[in-house]
Simulated assay, not measured.
Amino acid sequence: MYDLHTHTILSDGELLPTELVRRAAVLGYETLAVTDHADASNLAHLVEAVGEVRDAARCYGVDLLVGVELTHVPPTLIPALARDAKRRGADIVVVHGETVVEPVAPGTNRAACTCEDVDVLAHPGLVTEEDAREAATRGIALEITSRGGHNRTNGHVVRVAREAGCRLVVDSDTHAPSDLMSKEARWAVACGAGLTGAESREVLSWDIKRLLQK
């Protein structure tokens, strides 16, 4: 199991990174990305701080991915910040997409889907097929999320991703302990979003290291 979108006390989550890793390990997760909210003010700190937890994650049998979620960053600044995150050692860059429940700047989805250094577009709302095709050409995954509010458009995201041939991932956008999903909950979110059984099995069992090798 994997989760590529989680938060800790380094931004607006409730858990220390190590406690988050431990709780994920108990649920059976093999790969966990810590992707706290980032902009130019804290990106460097987040990458360095999460990197300090790698040894603890190994002790618990979890492959920890150091990441950030670029959040409410002006679209024109996304490429430079994503590139900076990777330069500083981030394994994964997530962009806070144009969810229908927050005032995300128009053009954010487009900026993310056309950026080589972005790996996942989180809760992309009413993402267009054109943007999804751009993401597909760059190996950028669109997110199906269990997070309340953000998950209103999961069905639309699945439909558009199918048409565009774009990868999908299932994430929790965890902020609190109860947000982490069990294996059964992940399956329910995937199928509830409109994926077939075969599609759900594929999406839920990605080899994440290969997924990130774009």
Score class of each variant (00 low, 15 high):
Tyr2His: 11
Tyr2Thr: 08
Thr6Asn: 12
His7Asn: 10
Ser11Asp: 06
Ser11Met: 00
Asp12His: 15
Leu16Tyr: 14
Arg22Lys: 13
Ala25Trp: 07
Leu27Asp: 14
Gly28Phe: 11
Thr31Trp: 07
Thr31Leu: 02
Ala33Gly: 07
Ala33Gln: 11
Val34Met: 01
Thr35Arg: 07
Asp36Tyr: 02
Ala38Met: 01
Ala38His: 01
Asn42Asp: 11
Ala49Ile: 02
Arg54Asn: 01
Arg58Leu: 13
Arg58Glu: 15
Asp63Phe: 02
Leu64Cys: 02
Leu64Ser: 06
Val66Gly: 03
Glu69Trp: 06
His72Gly: 00
Val73Lys: 10
Thr76Gly: 07
Leu77Met: 11
Ile78Phe: 04
Pro79Gly: 12
Ala85Pro: 08
Ile92Leu: 15
Ile92Asp: 00
Ile92Met: 10
Val95Arg: 07
His96Lys: 04
Gly97Lys: 04
Val101Trp: 14
Val101His: 11
Val104Ala: 00
Ala105Tyr: 08
Pro106Lys: 04
Gly107Ala: 02
Thr108Ser: 13
Thr108Met: 09
Asn109Gly: 05
Cys113Thr: 13
Val118Tyr: 06
Val118Cys: 08
Ala122Trp: 08
Gly125Phe: 00
Ala132Ser: 06
Glu134Tyr: 10
Thr137His: 14
Thr137Trp: 09
Arg138Asp: 09
Arg138Val: 04
Gly139Asp: 10
Ile144Pro: 14
Ile144Thr: 03
Thr145Gln: 00
Gly148Asn: 12
Asn154Met: 10
Gly155Asn: 11
His156Asn: 02
Arg159Ile: 04
Arg159Gln: 15
Ala164Leu: 05
Arg167Met: 15
Asp171Gly: 09
Ser172Gln: 08
Lys183Asp: 14
Ala185Lys: 15
Arg186Cys: 12
Cys191Trp: 11
Gly192Gln: 14
Gly194Trp: 08
Gly194Ile: 01
Thr196Met: 07
Thr196Glu: 10
Gly197Ser: 14
Ser200Met: 10
Glu202Phe: 11
Val203Phe: 08
Val203Leu: 13
Ser205Cys: 11
Asp207Ser: 04
Lys209His: 15
Arg210Ala: 06
Gln213Ser: 15
Gln213Thr: 14
Lys214Pro: 14
